[in-house]
């Protein structure tokens, strides 16, 4: 966990004044299914300042990837979105939604970098990995081809890949999963973006490699003062890397706050359940809740009231199954639960 929270907070405060901040507000995404519009994301808001890492956590299908793709402007054509996505720095505010495709392209790779969830399919199977990394630089005319190739090799070296000059000439299928993931990271990092989005960068890897990759991302984002949006379904991973966390459930943020607070004293029953299902993180106090029963509602089959109430052992009929639940400030965090006040006092 973060050893010096005060220092980190001060650092992020300083960064907020100088570096750019990503602000997403009321992001809504819907898909057409059987001629009906299905809401996949129901008004998600968050911000990430430079030098800061925000973790987006939740079970599979809760909308983490589409959130990140919406920020990058890479949503699948079948999905429609509304809401605001803006990058603000000393120079002013860039509205990412209003940008033309050409203007957005200038930001992608240079100011916005993304590590995709699937390193196997996200790399071009027919292009040498060195060329794929260098392409970020050559596309934006940052440097010459030779220089870009040289920097790509240096980046692979930085990623801890042995014999990077030779590896740069390899095709993706010739590399192991861990190496492919490093290539993805190198590709996202080489343009020195202001905002890095990492979508489950370690999910496919075994534990030791996972730890190395996390360390790499953390070091690089500290070193460069990047704003990092780190997506994971694993709270243990997030505990090591994030400053703040936003827990998502069924297309909504249900709890968000500083990582230590959320992990030590989760407020939303879903967060409590998530932590309990990670034995290393759970303590006796929460053991009685244990793992969450039931399954995430499919988009379009969202229950009335609190989306989590059918799976919640604390749900109260007549309260939790009617009306929308707002995100409310409580104990330095935002929580989407109607019973949070009474529970904490009790």
């Amino acid at each position: 966990m973060n050893p010096l929270p005060a220092l980190a907070a001060a650092a992020s405060e300083k960064a907020t004044q100088s570096g750019p901040t990503l602000a997403v507000s009321d992001l809504r995404i819907s898909a057409k299914r059987d001629r009906k519009s299905v809401e996949l994301l129901r008004g998600v808001s968050f911000h990430v300042a430079s030098g800061e890492t925000l973790a987006l956590v939740g079970e599979s299908g809760c909308g983490k990837s589409i959130t990140s793709l919406a920020v990058m402007g890479l949503l699948a054509p079948g999905l429609s979105m509304s809401g605001e996505v803006a990058l603000t720095d000393a120079g002013g505010r860039i509205d990412l939604v209003a940008l033309s495709a050409a203007e957005r392209r200038k930001l992608c790779g240079r100011r916005l970098g993304m590590i995709f969830q699937e390193p196997m399919t996200s790399l071009n199977p027919m292009q040498r990995v060195g060329d794929q990394i260098a392409e970020t630089l050559t596309t934006h005319g940052i440097c010459s081809r030779q220089e870009a190739a040289r920097r790509a090799v240096a980046m692979l070296d930085r990623m801890g890949i042995a014999d990077p000059g030779r590896r740069a000439l390899a095709l993706p299928h010739e590399l192991s999963g861990g190496m492919r993931q490093r290539v993805m990271i190198a590709m996202a990092m080489i343009g020195e973006p202001d905002l890095l989005i990492a979508d489950e960068p370690t999910t496919a890897l075994d534990v030791t490699v996972q730890a190395q990759i996390l360390e790499l991302i953390r070091d690089l984002s500290r070193e460069r003062g990047m704003a990092t949006l780190f997506i994971s379904h694993d709270l243990a991973v997030v505990a090591d890397i994030a400053d703040r966390v936003a827990v998502m459930y069924a297309g909504e943020i249900v709890e968000t706050g500083p990582i230590d607070q959320v992990l030590d004293a989760p407020l939303h029953p879903y967060t409590i359940g998530l932590i309990a299902s990670r034995p290393a993180l759970s303590t006796e106090r929460r053991a009685r809740l244990s793992a969450i029963f039931g399954a995430v509602p499919e988009p379009g089959r969202r229950p009335q009231g609190c989306a989590f109430h059918p799976r919640c052992s604390l749900a109260k009929p007549g309260l939790c199954d009617v009306g929308d639940v707002p995100l409310k400030r409580f104990d330095g965090r935002d929580v989407r639960c109607l019973r949070v006040g009474e529970r904490v006092q009790a």
Partner: peptide, 21 residues
């Protein structure tokens, strides 16, 4: 395919995405 999306995320112009990738 996913790698086409990756190319776009790098800011590669659409024509290059279509032809090269």
């Amino acid at each position: 395919q996913d790698f086409i999306r990756t190319a776009r995320a790098k800011g590669v112009p659409e024509r290059t995405v279509v032809v090269r990738h």
